[in-house]
Computed example of a mutant assay.
Amino acid sequence: MSFFRALNRNLPYIRQQFGALLGNTSASVKTICGIVLFSYCLSYSENAVKIISVTPGLLMPPAFWLWTAFTFCFLEIYFWEVIIDIVTVGLCGKLIEPLWGQMEMMSFFAIVNFGVAVITTIFYLILFAFTSNDELLFEVHIHGLAGYLAGVSVAVKQIMPDLVIVKTPLGKLSNRNVPLTAFFGSLVCWLIGLLDGTYPTMFLSGLIVSWIYLRFYQKHSNGTRGDMADYFNFASFFPNVIQPPVHVISNSIYSILVKIGLCRKVVRKYDIANPTGVMIVPGIEQQDVERRRQIALKALSERLSKYQQDKQPLLPKSTKDLKPDLLSNTPTQPPAPSHVPPATSSSQELKTVIVDDVNNGASTSFMPPPTIL
């Protein structure tokens, strides 16, 4: 009862935040959120869950329930999953849709979810082939936007620069680590009983499908397809320690897919006229150039701040702070050149600025040149 009372008190604030999230978004985003809310009401009916969800034994022949591959993504059983789905779709409308456009965002939504349905079904068919357990075919119901959440995390990794989200005792967590971290988090939640067993499988399927689409097949406004940049390769999702073996495995699989015609071979161009030998990778648009510029500026600012902290000289405020032996060792003024006319007595008084280097204990002197009238 206390939960519902707290919910009623915070209901106006929650409504206000959702209104701000979904405000100024396209009709497609609002439609997806509305269907998710309506499907949650249908989740209390077992027949509706069976009809809307993907059941591995019914998606394949002879039943052939193909429509479930397009409806399963709108059904959630738990209300907190509905909230996460609405927030994610709303953020996509704010962040991704202005860059891609409404049609590309809807295409990404449909491709990722359909691929998740197919790959997850194949996974349970393989499990059935090893275990001969009929429950894996007819008692498992695949539903929800877990695969699309994984796809959004991959898209954010591609669009946004490598920014540090939070600092932990184990290291820094950036948006580059979000997809794999979220997958292992779903595994932990499944082990402790907070999520169904289909959730980690759908999430991993969404990671694979979304990366393949964005890497090789997404069409850009300049006529190119995919994003073949080095920062978006498959090994970049993993920590730096295990990236070399992942590189070997992923490159081997990629070579096989190129030979059978499922993937295209990367054609890299070099600007010979440029003395730096800049490599041009197809599939890079203006937002990618801007992202690289932001990454370079961030790295440069960090290096400059670190250098200033390490090499900042300490200047004495006056000659009273200097040691007597340093003052006695100050070199005298060199004679003025013969071709320079003699100056007044006031202009001949030159000031000597002595800088005491605290790092090596050496003293240097700087003498301004004589005034030429």
Rank of each mutant, 00 (worst) to 15 (best):
L22D: 00
A6Q: 14
F3A: 10
F366R: 11
A273H: 11
V89K: 01
P313I: 07
I272G: 01
I272C: 05
K50S: 15
N222R: 07
I122C: 12
V355I: 15
L314P: 00
Y44M: 12
P239L: 06
D196W: 05
V188G: 12
Y254N: 01
G90R: 02
G223P: 00
S347W: 10
Y78E: 10
E135V: 05
I260W: 15
F237P: 00
F70R: 01
G19F: 07
F74S: 06
L22E: 01
N251V: 04
Q287D: 15
G34I: 00
H141W: 03
S301M: 12
N133L: 07
N233S: 15
R268N: 06
D230R: 15
D325Y: 09
T168M: 14
A343S: 15
L11Q: 10
V353C: 06
K317M: 09
F216E: 08
I165A: 15
I96N: 03
G223I: 09
D325V: 06
Y254Q: 00
S153R: 06
G147P: 01
E46Q: 14
S346V: 14
T319A: 15
L262D: 11
P331H: 05
G19E: 07
I51M: 11
L204P: 02
V156A: 03
I111D: 03
A146G: 10
Q158S: 02
